[in-house]
Design a protein around this nucleic acid. Structure first.
Lengths: 261, 261
DNA sequence: CAATCATTGCGTTGTTATGACACAATATAA
DNA sequence: TTATATTGTGTCATAACAACGCAATGATTG
């Protein structure tokens, strides 16, 4: 028999006192989207014990607004702030929870959870999605048995519980938001070219857009600053750089855009 | 001192055993919209003990999908089925719960709830909205201390907890749905006139629409059957009656409409 | 019973948004 | 220097849309 490892203090606390600290039976899960090399990716955690991928998620403290809990999860993993974080759906199938995951997780410490332990109950989760710029993020592994990675949205595989359907639903919500909200502020670097922005839209929508019509429409929204610089270095003609006009971008976030894609 | 009333069995059960039957700390609330005499109304319950209005709501059984819980609430009050029921947001401000409501409610039975009673904990609620036809519904009072009524959306007043903001958020969600989903199937009688349908849209959107452009667009959606009958009896020219083409309506519900209002 | 009148059915027009495409300018690579 | 792929800008036909005109209708009124 393998020698039992020592359980870390923070885990022991959550295990035993979790229901004193957190709202029982409810969690938040975040689908954090990033854009890199023209691919839309989602931040997933590899959970060692069960060898599956999971969305970053967490519990809601007794006196904490739901949004804060989601923001806390986002912060813990990415460290970024000032991020567009959007609640999109609650998932509550009674069979979505899987008690064996937690059992396995504590087994290595030689702990068998009692049947009425709060972690083994049914959980309802509230789904959020966020969009962040991929480039300047150093992912943090906040636990020893979970490592974070960006996974291509089209190559989702071996996800825990119902997390794949949560990601897909988040993607759906993101797409429909694209119709009336500005997107890109948090997914692209400060300065970007029109083709880069277009690639982002094409990736999210999963279809080609006409280069010239895209530019006309995007300019028409009036949320971009055209800079006098160009992006040299790539082959061929150097495209102009743009940045978002933060004031107008925020205004558009509040009031919506009329674009139909 | 007033003599304490006898507590009904079902209440006693919920009070004492509720946390064995239901998910703790989580509820559903339904904003049920109806349309009558060109006014959009929402179904509210008058809660006698606190003399405030509340949304029909309920708890989620241990082994029940969230949607079923919402549907159960809808059924209990209205008896209708085959209804469009849409989850739109979770509300989780830690201060939204108000333990005094439950305390007052049981006070008349001479019961003082212990501080750790499950009803006194913080509740997170998942909001749904539904649209139903006003005319052939007999509202049911499922409890003795709550009576149901249709309240004009523009005359909301004296609502419990955060229920007013839930209704407003539901209305907002309904409006944005109007942009890409068919509406009316459950809000209007089987047969209706074009002006009646237009009034519904105008009421939800809270603005005037051009009569002729509305008709052209609506017909263009291809979800209406034009009947050969007209609605006689009103003064002036008798308008044609229409009905929804159920097959195409359902298809549009799934696939969306491209209309922008 | 004919005139009145608000409302309905159907149509027109000018403007704007959209999709599809043309062509010259430009930065690098050969 | 030339070739090539890409970008910047513009055009055109079509579709969608808002604003409006006018005749038909059916109850009301004198």
């Amino acid at each position: 028999m393998a020698k039992s490892a020592q359980i870390p203090n923070n885990k022991k606390l959550i295990l035993e006192k979790g229901d004193k600290i957190y709202q029982p039976g409810i969690s938040v899960d975040c689908a954090i989207f990033g854009f890199h090399e023209n691919v839309l990716k989602v931040l997933l955690l590899k959970v060692e014990h069960i060898n599956k991928w999971a969305l970053p998620g967490g519990f809601i403290k007794k006196n904490e607004p739901i949004e804060n809990a989601a923001y806390r999860v986002l912060q813990e993993r990415t460290g970024v702030d000032n991020i567009f974080l959007q609640q999109f759906n609650a998932f509550g199938d009674p069979n979505r929870s899987d008690a064996s995951i937690h059992q396995n997780r504590f087994q290595e410490y030689g702990i068998k959870l009692p049947k009425d332990n709060w972690l083994l109950q049914r959980f309802i989760t509230i789904g959020f999605y966020a969009l962040i710029d991929f480039t300047d993020i150093k992912l943090k592994d906040v636990t020893t048995d979970e490592s974070a990675a960006w996974i291509d949205i089209n190559k989702l595989n071996n996800l825990m519980m119902d997390h794949e359907s949560i990601v897909l639903k988040a993607l759906e919500a993101l797409r429909s938001q694209l119709a009336y909200l500005p997107i890109g502020r948090n997914l692209l670097p400060k300065k970007f070219t029109m083709p880069e922005l277009q690639k982002l839209y094409e990736t999210i929508l999963d279809r080609k857009l006409d280069r010239r019509n895209f530019q006309r429409k995007m300019i028409g929204f009036g949320i971009l600053n055209k800079l006098s610089e160009t992006r040299k270095g790539g082959a061929h003609k150097a495209p102009f750089l743009y940045s978002f006009n933060d004031k107008k971008y925020q205004k558009a976030l509040k009031e919506g855009l009329y674009g139909t894609w």
